[in-house]
Design a binder for these strands. Structure first.
Length: 234
DNA sequence: AACCAGGACGTGA
DNA sequence: TCACGTCATGGT
C-alpha cells in the first residue's frame, strides 16, 4: 500500500463515511449505519436512485463551483419551490421567470453565469436521452470544467473518476506528494494510478479530502496544524 | 477588513 | 500552455 491508500484509510478511520453527494430531497428512509444528516447519506451508496436525484446532483455540481455547500443548499431549496429537479421544467421556468430563477440561486453567487450554465447543462442533459455522457462530452458544455465533470460522473453516474479540488492540491502539495502547479489531469492521473479503490472509495476519498481540508487547509498557513497526516510529509 | 468558499471562462502573452 | 482578471453572495 502506498501513501494514497494509507492516507485514505487514515481519513476514513478518522472522519468516517461522508455520505456524498448530499441531496435536499433525501428522505432518510433508507437503512444506513450512521444515519442521515442534512441530506447526507453515509453508508448508502445506491444514490442517486432516479433521474430526479441525478439531475439534482448535476445542477448542484454547477451551483457549488467556488461556493460553500450551505449556500448551494439554500439555492436548491429556493429552486425547489418553483420546479422539480427536471431538466425540461428547469428550461421552461428559466424562459418564463428569469428574474425569479436568478433570485432563487443568488445565495450560491455568480448567479448570472450560473443561470446560463444551468440552462446549458439542462439542454445537454435532455439531448442525452437518458444515456451516460462521456467525460469529453460533458466538458464541451460551457460551464462544466474538469472538477464539475468528474463530480457529475463520479457521484451522478457512478463512474470511477477521481475528483481533484483546491483542497486536494493544498493538502497533497503540502505533504510533498505533488507540486503546487501540477495540472488537474496530472494530479487526477496520479490518484487513479496509485489509489486502489472502487467507486464508493473514490466517492469517499474526495469527500474526506474536503472535510479534512476545511479543518486544516482553509486558513493560512495551510496544514501547519494537520497532525493527522503529518507523518506522510516528505 | 480581508480572505475564503467542494471553479470556469476569456484574454493576452 | 499559462498567468491573470472576472464573476457575486455569504460566512468568518
Amino acid at each position: 500500500m502506498d501513501d494514497y491508500d494509507l492516507i485514505y484509510k487514515k481519513l476514513l478511520k478518522n472522519y468516517s463515511n461522508q455520505g456524498w453527494w448530499p441531496s435536499i430531497g433525501f428522505d432518510g428512509k433508507n437503512p444506513t449505519k450512521t444515519g442521515v444528516i442534512k441530506g447526507y447519506h453515509p453508508g448508502f451508496y445506491e444514490f442517486p436512485r432516479n433521474t430526479t436525484e441525478l439531475f439534482e446532483i448535476i445542477i448542484g455540481a454547477i451551483l457549488t463551483q467556488n461556493t460553500s455547500w450551505t449556500s448551494v443548499e439554500k439555492s436548491l431549496i429556493n429552486l425547489r419551490e418553483y420546479i422539480n429537479f427536471d431538466a425540461q421544467e428547469l428550461l421552461d421556468f428559466s424562459k418564463n421567470n428569469e428574474n425569479k430563477f436568478k433570485e432563487a440561486i443568488k445565495p450560491a453567487g455568480y448567479y448570472n453565469q450560473k443561470f446560463n450554465y444551468l440552462i446549458n447543462i439542462s439542454e445537454f442533459y435532455l439531448s442525452l436521452n437518458g444515456n451516460t455522457p462521456s467525460r469529453e462530452e460533458i466538458l464541451n458544455v460551457k460551464g462544466v470544467g474538469n472538477e464539475t465533470a468528474d463530480s457529475i460522473l463520479l457521484y451522478g453516474y457512478g463512474e470511477k473518476q477521481f475528483v481533484i479540488d483546491a483542497y486536494t492540491k493544498r493538502i497533497f502539495s503540502y505533504l510533498g506528494l505533488i507540486k503546487e502547479k501540477d495540472s488537474y489531469l496530472k494530479i487526477k492521473n496520479l490518484f487513479e494510478e496509485n489509489f486502489n479503490g472502487d467507486v464508493k472509495d473514490f466517492q469517499e476519498y474526495h469527500a474526506l479530502i474536503v472535510e479534512h481540508g476545511k479543518r486544516h487547509y482553509s486558513k493560512k498557513p495551510y496544514g501547519v496544524n494537520d497532525k493527522l497526516l503529518n507523518n506522510f510529509k516528505k
